[in-house]
Design a protein around this nucleic acid. Structure first.
Lengths: 132, 132, 132, 132
DNA sequence: TTTT
DNA sequence: TTTT
């Protein structure tokens, strides 16, 4: 059991890249507000790195933009990598299994909030090289 | 919504420290097996940093040891800190809200696997300085 | 571990009642769409009974209306009761621990989708008689 | 989003049946302890109906027995049916998507608690007639 | 580096 | 009994 469920807003537009074998990978940072913590000061959100693969990656690239609110269902992955200075570092990211769009950016006034699109990703397992 | 649910084994005994204001903080790494990913090679688990506060921290210190299997229910937190070389780094950790002990270490043969203790922690919010 | 997380729309306005000891209880049905199942025919949603207690109940009564989309975080409870014909029946319901409002009904055009209110309930445990 | 995560013990051996089209369906009741509620009296667990389909159903039939502890990850489904007296009733059940075996029944003393098998089911969608 |  |  390794399950993560987050509701937040995209802190930036998703970036979509491709592995050497041609798989799509989308990545973006999700701003997840903390309630009760930090007041409305500056540091009141967790900025969580999200990764999506293949069909889900493409859906992200085509449908998500900065500021949009989504629900991400995935698993927490800790990846190791070697930094430029030769030291070993670890980075945590959430590998999305499905993403529910809780609103659409630029929707016409008449249908605002009426959308309920779900996107499901195949569960791609870790240590696939992410091309960035 | 910021929810994380993990089942894994303690990769080490918990360390319990105290903040300047006297709050207990327990920390340990949880080894969460990946199924289907990485084969049975070396890299088949995510090593996730876990933090627990106050009463829950003390329960961890008193009842958990390396190798024990637990279920952690908490939230994902991204903390920033300044590294020794002056660069800013980010670390992810799961702040436990409750921990369910799925087995007891050193249980007598007769009751192995029959325990079901739950520990609930108050939800302590972030950016409290962790003393380590 | 008994955790339920649902995103759906209120199928009706919440009803708020009070126990003999004066505790508020809100109840409503949540329509949770099924994706991939049942097509867009009639039977494409699960209608899940939700119960909230005390302060959370009052927040529901004051802020939620039919059609509104919410995220409910709670636990699944099975209650037994005696039907009119004397037979024993079981009813399942989700006891809400927190509810996140994913949209506001009747919001002005300018701020639609910008709300992010969380409501947390004390975890009231079962077999409290629900007054209905 | 329709997610349920439960840890409990099988209240009975699973029953495996087959639909007319030949799909396997396993069903059993899971006893999920309530902590803090009901004291250690009689009514201190929720008895939750669980359903699993196809390959996962067979794994349940072959590997699970009464009393065994498992973690069930699934979704909550409300089904309508007509009772013998002609009235319409609703029943809630959790459709398992994966089941983690937290212990093995009859394990030898030496490996008790060391098992960590995961079983994943295809997500079969509702209103398939369950043959019972 | 960051969302609202 | 039901939401969009």
């Amino acid at each position: 059991m390794n399950k993560v469920i987050l509701v937040g807003r995209l802190a930036q537009d998703p970036e979509v890249r491709y592995t050497q074998s041609g798989k799509a990978v989308a990545s973006f940072t999700l701003a997840v507000n903390r309630f009760g913590g930090g007041g409305q000061g500056q540091n009141n959100a967790d900025f969580v790195p999200i990764v999506a693969w293949e069909k889900l990656a493409e859906t992200c690239g085509n449908n998500l933009t900065k500021g949009q609110r989504v629900l991400v269902d995935g698993r927490l992955q800790i990846r190791s990598y070697e930094a430029n200075d030769g030291t070993k570092r670890r980075v945590a990211e959430v590998v999305a299994q499905s993403i529910e769009f809780l609103e659409r950016k630029q929707a016409s006034a008449s249908d605002a909030g009426n959308i309920d699109i779900n996107s499901f990703g195949k569960d791609v397992f870790p240590d696939e090289e992410i091309p960035f």
